[in-house]
Computed example of a mutant assay.
Amino acid sequence: MVAVAVVDDDAEARARLRGYLARFAEGRDGMALSVDEFPSAVALLHHYQPTYDIIFLDIEMDEVDGIKAAQVIRETDPATILVFVTNMAQLAIKGYEVEALDFVVKPVDYYSFDMVMRKALLRMDRRRQSTVRLVTRGAVQVLPISHIDYVEVQNHYITYHTTDGDFTVKGTLAQAEDALAQGNFMRCNRWYLVNIDNITGLDGNLVTVGGRSIEVSRSKKQEILRAVTASMGGAL
């Protein structure tokens, strides 16, 4: 599912983009899309939650313009892909300050829209392959998978222990496994998922990762040993 927001004070412009989104999804075997429309930046920012993959954001709007709205969004959401929609291309240059992907000029033609959507999906794929996105207390943390040493579950909460600090979200170890499928992670017991590539020591039933010694269950010991050996090029 790709979650998209269309923010524009022009109802006709919103309808055009919604139609383009439906056409784009249909051309990809009915790719799953959810689309929310907002008639103003104020409406988008009211109780904003970092749930959108892509936001099409009109620049010229009353009260709060698109540039200002993007700056507010970036305070809590560094991951969403921003695409500016504008009557004047020169205004979109400010998009680099908020790491916008691109811009399209009104009236938006389908060719330009299609190109931007292709770029957006490519960026999403690259991020998903190398990072994990966590929503913590209304903020978004995008963590490089290689920075995650191990994941711990306690009372329906999972903590990602990383070289950049610890981040706790509600969830299960199975959900963490799915999110980290692109990495080299394995369960060492019921409560811990370890990054095989970051293990620095293996002694008996203990592995050392991120400066922490974690017990390996008997049923997992040989599997972990083989994985560590393979990660080290057979040098263990």
Score class of each variant (00 low, 15 high):
E26R: 15
N205R: 13
A25R: 07
A92W: 07
E63F: 11
A181H: 02
I196V: 12
F113K: 00
H47C: 07
K68Q: 12
Y96H: 05
E223A: 15
M88K: 05
E152W: 09
D203G: 02
N87L: 07
V194L: 08
A179P: 03
E177Y: 12
D58A: 01
I148L: 10
Y110A: 04
N184K: 06
V140L: 13
D197I: 00
Y48E: 00
R226K: 12
G138K: 09
D53I: 07
I73S: 08
N87C: 07
V4T: 06
Y96I: 15
M88C: 04
S34T: 15
R18M: 13
L173G: 09
L122Y: 15
I224F: 01
K94C: 07
H46R: 14
R190E: 10
I224K: 00
L180K: 00
K221G: 00
W191C: 14
L21D: 05
I59K: 02
Y150I: 14
S219R: 07
R28A: 11
K221T: 02
D36V: 11
R226H: 13
L202D: 02
F38H: 11
A100I: 12
T159K: 05
V151P: 01
V104K: 05
D109V: 03
F38K: 07
M88V: 09
F38M: 05
L21A: 01
F185N: 03
F167E: 15
I73V: 09
S112P: 02
N198G: 07
A235G: 15
L236K: 04
D114K: 03
R14Y: 03
V6T: 03
E75L: 13
L21W: 06
V207S: 05
S40N: 01
R212I: 14
V216C: 00
R123Y: 06
S130D: 10
E26L: 10
T168E: 11
F24K: 04
G66S: 02
F113Q: 01
D102F: 08
D53G: 04
G138E: 14
